[in-house]
Nucleic acid binder design. Structure first.
Length: 505
RNA sequence: GGCCCAUUCGUCUAACGGUUAGGACAUGCGGUUUUCAUCCGUAAAAUAGGAGUUCGAUUCUCCUAUGGGCUACCA
């Protein structure tokens, strides 16, 4: 059973924070694993030591934790297939490269990167923009295919720097069946002799990836579309080692909301929405805002992400993580890239805010307000305000008047509604209000209605004044609900306090 | 430039040869509301173009166009 169970991996490189495209890849891996009672693991691909960014790995782990899609194997998580960081596996790769050389599937190449750049530039000048180190040009380069074995041995003994390259066969159609795209065919004449092992003693992505996926018994490789062109190379590598290849699924890319191209780090600040799950502070101190800090609930973020390139085939759009696991399948993943839509994202957030109970909301709000008010009070505030909020913080920016007397009065409303006779009217209303015995929404409303009838005034004349005095605003929830929450005494006091404030102006 | 992948309303997508081409977001207009939000109703909005295959193409094939990805001793 163990060798047939599903094992998938998320394999980011720690070159920076994980952006939402990466989170979606991780999410689909997570969903697929859970759906099939399999294992979801994370492997850090840090074979390029020059691009290592401190803190990136921790960021990735934290972000996944916030999203609720933690792997069960990985650095710091345990598992029987470790280590899960490629730099810590360094010594494991060389024998595999040697094996390929022995079987003549790969060869030593001594050309320096400077020589190669020169070669490309030269070819470009001669009108050949497409120079590649491949099965045609390798004969004229310095490598163990073109050089005599004595010469090769001499250079090796001499300690000359070299890389190990894949010896791509000539004119072979490599085919594999992608779980999302169906059959993909590429002719080997179109792929170059990729470097497998670098002169610094580290493998490249291609070698390390295949070796680790094999050793970690990965059954399904679910990754971004940007890997599609190198998939044939990977297939050939599995063949060269005589291993069964895992199944491949190449996910469509996430595109910019406007214009063209894939979503990138800078789009967030440019367009005013986050591209990262959580805040990221770059090395030069620049801060990129995250969904978490912006006030999004992880459930909303994940729900939105799941629907970018996948759908359940029904009209249901709100899915918990467990429901996503239940509904997910690779054959319902779209093929074309998806433009990210910030508006829809906000809509998801709004839906989840509504769906969250008032106590939970109050607890979140309490954190923002640093425990300034009791959970009980905040719970009531949330109940009154959440219908008109998108983020938890909106509840406070729109509804702080419920706990704090207004110090400012909306200028527009004052100008429009506050007349010379308003003061007398409100004083009169205050006196009436003060006589209400059982002070609740219904009794207040009934009293208000009879007050209107008696004064022969329209509701639109009186209520906005009442609202203005009590809340300082021109809009908001039902005034009768607000009044009940505030209590009789506070209502009466606010009316007189409000009147004196308006007098000063 | 070469190779690969893709193409249904503005956006995310449904329809796996036969539908008045459906839903959601956004937008417009109504209704509800003291107001704002919510909510309800409603409208407008798409099969990139051209050939085939077929009794019949959004759906299959080819061409063109467009978009995207890759083209490093990066992943």
């Amino acid at each position: 059973m163990s060798n047939t169970s599903v094992r998938v991996r998320f394999a980011p490189s720690p070159t920076g924070p994980l952006h939402m495209g990466g989170v979606r890849t991780a999410l689909y891996n997570y969903l697929f694993a859970k759906k099939h009672n399999g294992t979801f693991l994370i492997r850090i691909e840090d074979t390029d030591q020059t691009r290592f960014v401190p803190g990136a790995q921790d960021y990735i782990m934290d972000a996944m934790k916030w999203c609720g899609i933690m792997p069960t194997e990985g650095p710091g998580l345990g598992g029987d297939f470790g280590p899960y960081i490629q730099s810590e596996r360094k010594e494991m790769y060389r024998p595999y490269a040697d094996e390929l050389i022995k079987n003549e599937k790969a060869y030593y190449a001594f050309d320096s990167s400077e020589e190669l750049t020169q070669m490309r530039e030269q070819a470009l000048k001669m009108g050949m923009p497409n120079w590649q180190y491949n099965n045609v040009t390798r004969a004229s380069m310095q490598n163990s295919v073109s050089l005599s074995s004595d010469e090769v041995q001499k250079r090796l003994d001499n300690g000359d720097p070299y890389v190990i390259r894949m010896k791509m066969p000539r004119n072979v159609d490599v085919r594999f069946e992608d779980e999302i795209r169906g059959w993909v065919v590429v002719n080997t004449n179109n792929v170059d002799d990729k470097v497998l092992f670098k002169s610094d003693g580290m493998p490249t992505y291609h070698l390390a990836n295949i070796v680790d996926d094999h050793l970690m018994e990965i059954t399904h490789v679910i990754r971004g579309e940007e890997w599609l062109p190198s998939a044939p190379l990977h297939v050939l590598l599995y063949e060269a080692f005589g291993w069964d290849a895992p199944k491949f699924a190449h996910l469509p890319l996430l595109l910019k909301p406007d214009g063209n191209g894939k979503l990138s780090k800078r789009d967030g600040d440019r367009l005013g929405f986050p591209v990262f799950p959580t805040d990221w502070r770059s090395e030069d101190g620049e801060i990129f805002t995250g969904y978490r800090e912006k006030g999004y609930l992880p459930e909303a973020f994940i729900n939105m992400l799941a629907f970018l390139g996948w759908n359940p085939g029904t009209t249901k759009e709100l899915f918990s993580l467990d429901e996503l696991v239940e509904a997910f399948s690779l054959d319902r993943v779209a093929k074309a890239g998806a433009k990210f839509d910030p508006d829809k994202t906000k809509w998801f957030q709004q839906q989840y805010l509504r769906g969250t109970d008032n106590v939970t909301l109050a607890e979140k709000l309490s954190v923002v307000l640093e425990n300034k008010y009791s959970i009980d009070k905040l719970t009531s505030v949330c109940g009154l305000m959440k219908e008109r909020a998108t983020f938890v913080e909106d509840i406070w920016t729109e509804g702080s008047f419920l706990l704090e007397r207004p110090s400012e009065f909306d200028e527009q409303t004052v100008n429009k509604k506050w007349k010379d006779e308003s003061e007398a009217l409100m004083l009169e209303w205050s006196a009436v209000l003060n006589t209400v015995a059982n002070f609740n929404t219904e009794t207040i409303e009934a009293t208000f209605k009879s007050f209107l009838a008696e004064k022969e005034l329209g509701i639109g004349v009186v209520l906005p004044l009442f609202r203005l005095l009590l809340t300082g605003k021109g809009m908001g929830p039902s005034m009768f609900d607000i009044s009940e929450f505030l209590g009789k005494e506070e209502c009466v006091e606010r009316i007189s306090a409000g009147i004196s404030s308006l007098k000063k102006v």
